[in-house]
Design a protein around this nucleic acid. Sequence first.
DNA 1: CCTCTATGGCGAA
DNA 2: TCGCCCTAGAGGC
Length: 269
Amino acid sequence: MPEGHTIHRIARDHAKLLVGPALVASSPQGRFDSSAALLDGRRLAGIEAYGKHLFYDFEHDLVLHVHLGLFGKYRVHRTEVTEAPPPPRGAVRLRLSAPTATIDLAGPTACELGTPDDRDAIVARLGPDPLRADAKAELAVDRMARSRAPIGALLLDQSVLSGIGNVYRAEALFVHGLDPRRSGRTVAPETLTELWDTMRTMLRNGVKDGRIVTVDPAEVGVRTRTKVPKGERTYVYHQDLCRRCGTAIVHDEIGARTCWWCPSCQPAP
DNA sequence: CCTCTATGGCGAA
DNA sequence: TCGCCCTAGAGGC
């Protein structure tokens, strides 16, 4: 489920559950044993989300870096103070417990302990994240405006901007009528700025809703995004027919992932 | 039971 | 560009 919206939501939720008390850390699966031992008994000062990366700031300059990748997932268990968390289900790499909450992490691409310097090095490789208040949109717009690469590949390039994944890229390009194969430098900078704004709005909605819904609810005949039925939440991503004009959706490999678009609403360059 | 898929990213060629 | 890593859930038999 993880594009940037998921990551920022996790940062917010986990901070509420875990910041403050000394935590109990373990690796039920065993693959994070020695690092979990280092975390055990420490307090969490805060959590930062940057693009699709999570940084858990523990006391004494210990930073837990988590990247969910394609398969990574968290499960959250709320408990009474006197109640033990349920036994871990499946391959749980890391379990962190506060008195009233436990989080289980399974299947992450990255789960590693490091220093604030390590964190800075990772962030330095990332383009601006539309969900962050400190994001400089011009950096991403300039990169795209100069690039010969397809715009569909640029949106997935985390060094250009961070947090966009395969669903949001297809949907944002649809909204602006852009064929994903168009080279970045053929797109007007003003359009690229509008594209950035669209992605930021989509991501913010995703944080709020806890899911990706990019269609206008009115177009589907419901009042709110959360009422849009499954399978009707995107215009072109994984669709057979364009939800706006009915044209058959086409798809192709762009930026190493399958991209869907409407050949009518997003005319070829 | 098996096979397939997925909103990601890395390092080796 | 390709292979590979990581896991859960859905669907087929």
